[in-house]
Amino acid sequence: MSTSIEFDHHADRSHMSVSDKVAIEITGMNKWYGNFHVLRDINLTVNEGERIVICGPSGSGKSTLIRCINRLEEHQEGSIIVDGTELSSDLKNVDKVRSEVGMVFQHFNLFPHLTILENCTLAPIWVRKTPRKEAEEMAMHFLEKVKIPEQAHKYPGMLSGGQQQRVAIARSLCMMPRIMLFDEPTSALDPEMIKEVLETMISLAEEGMTMLCVTHEMGFAKEVANRVIFMDAGQIVEQNEPNEFFDNPQSERTQLFLSQIL
């Protein structure tokens, strides 16, 4: 599943530095679906400004892992600390983490009964208590950033898949998140639309956003990520910086995976 999308290889991305402050800390995390052990002893520390791509075969637990970070899935063992807040059954902590962590889904999950603008202003108004006018200005700012301000008063059903996904990114950004999670954001899109979404994500990375991205877009991983994580059978098999990961994979499982997709 090689990607044919070309990025600007000469762009200077040296300023995309990683701070040494910890954004997410996962220690000894285990999760089961019934008796099925879906995540096994996950240990992962993400620093602020890191851009991590998680890849692996389907069913390897990569989506489940990032969905645990904003507790769309509950973990049963170990700890997840996001931005200093530990995720537990305390709903207040969960809501706090969720409002700091943006999430983009494979199927966009825009609210079809609201206009694009309302989709973007809903959470700021109801969760952050931002005045409507201010929220609308901010929404327009982010819609301009993802290059679709002219669609603000349309409904999601009237937009193409790529446009919908960019709206979904803008909707998350309106909450001013410190961390963004992407769960296969381009898997449901036509090749022509994948590029526009990836470009939006790259510009986000360039601004220093902490990003965790489950994707099969290896071009994106090479270009933007500072770390690639390979998962299989619910565990982290290998992680490395992208050049090393792609040119010199250590584990046999990784080598097999890369030989299949590249």
Binding site: N70, L91, D95, R98, M103, N109, L122, M175
Partner: peptide, 21 residues
């Protein structure tokens, strides 16, 4: 679709707000 509940949760809306909005 389940995604609507998840999107509402991911934005930090609580149960009643997600239901209502």
């Amino acid at each position: 679709p389940k995604g609507q509940y998840e999107a509402a949760d991911a934005l930090g809306l609580d149960y009643w707000k997600a239901q209502r909005l």
